[in-house]
Simulated scan of single mutants.
Amino acid sequence: MPERILVTGARAPAALDIARSLKAAGFEVHMADCVPARMARWSSAATAVHRHASPVHRPAKFAQDIRRLIDRIDPIAVIPTCEEVFHLAAVAKTDGWSEKLIAPPFETLATLHHKGRFAVLCDELGLPVPDTNVVTDSVGLMREALGADVVVKPAWSRFGSQALIKPDAAALERLRPSPEAPWVVQSRVEGEEVSFYAIAHDGILTAFSAYRSDWRTHGGAAYVFIPLAEPVFERLRAMAQTLARFVRKGQFACDAIVDEACRPWLIECNPRATSGVHLFGRSAALGRALLGRDIARPSPGRWRNGIMLDTFGLGDALRAKRLTAWRDERRLSHDILSAPRDPLPPLGALLDAAGFGLRALASGHGLAEAMTADIEWNGQPLTPALWERP
């Protein structure tokens, strides 16, 4: 009987490709989320896709659902892929099953996620990071940012959707930093934005990929993923190995800016799965690497989110007169959603996107915020009392 794995955050394309890799490695894959996750539900990658309550809106019910799910399917490992990782780490510590969770302890996750604390960590580890200051009031924000060549963003944030580059006084006055909602002011490094994704076990890298993108949303999220070449790839890999000794176990990913001297500067970290997963081509080696049983290496080729490229990308191509580049990208890259003998995930992803769009309209927030509002973590205390019986 195959070993069972539980993959959470089933809404994410990265979760789907992780499930495909685990299935290729011979595991029985179960997935879970607090939204319908039709993309995963309609895929052949998972034996079943389970539903649980939102850890943000119904934390006690979330904990109860996770406990029952783990008792029922008895997985050898739980692999988070989105920001539910913070809530799972807290529940796992309370309930005593942290060894099953493919993620570092909660405090390690918090250090990586907080942009100011991550910068301090990089300084301590000797990794290049721009000058970064945390501000918790408007006076400090004005003092650090006004008239300076800086990037300003919330310490707890994602997708770059709230980042401001060299903001003026009017933009700064609209911000409300506080001790509960700090912001960071980071010196701006000019160059190309790149990203890497890594898996660590016992402080050693078991998987690493690095990529850039010529296609991004206006918030900065990439939807085409182009593998990086030497020497930047190896420089980033060395940085990831240094971080792996701190992370010890689990997935982590970083964004960096490569300056004109070809030197990468780390700017922030995401302690979860990211689009770098796709560069492994759904290999069985990645599935085993997630459990520390193999070393996975990225496959050649570029990847795209076909739905994003055909919608946002086409619009951008028409505006910027890049239709030839758009056609070439569709021809040269592989789609992250579709796969041989697995044709339905793109349709499921469209319906999932429509559902998140309706949430965004109802809440008055942007699509990016609507996609994470029910699972994200922004520094609020996660205490055992939250997980008591609903």
Rank of each mutant, 00 (worst) to 15 (best):
M1R: 12
E3M: 02
V7E: 07
R11G: 08
A12E: 15
A14S: 09
I18A: 11
A19L: 02
K23E: 14
A25M: 05
G26Q: 09
A32M: 12
M39F: 12
S44D: 14
A45D: 04
A45N: 09
P59G: 04
A60E: 06
R67W: 04
I73R: 04
V85R: 12
E99L: 02
V120W: 01
E124Y: 01
V129R: 01
D137L: 10
L141T: 04
V152R: 07
P154C: 09
S157I: 04
R158L: 06
Q162V: 04
A163K: 12
I165T: 14
K166E: 14
R176A: 14
W183T: 06
V185H: 01
A200S: 08
H201S: 03
A207F: 11
Y211G: 03
Y211D: 10
D214E: 15
T217A: 14
V224A: 15
L228C: 00
V232F: 04
E234K: 11
R235K: 15
L236R: 03
R237Y: 08
M239C: 10
F252D: 06
A253L: 07
A253K: 01
C254M: 06
A256G: 02
I257L: 08
A261I: 06
A261L: 13
C262M: 15
L266F: 04
A273C: 09
T274K: 00
S275G: 02
S275F: 10
V277L: 05
H278F: 10
L279T: 11
F280A: 01
A284I: 00
L286D: 02
L290I: 03
L291W: 08
G292C: 01
N305T: 06
M308N: 11
F312G: 03
A317C: 06
L332D: 15
L337G: 02
S338T: 13
P340W: 06
R341Y: 12
P346Q: 12
A349Q: 15
F356T: 12
L361R: 12
A362R: 15
A362K: 15
H365R: 15
A368K: 00
A370V: 11
T372K: 00
D374N: 07
E376Y: 11
L382N: 11
P390R: 10
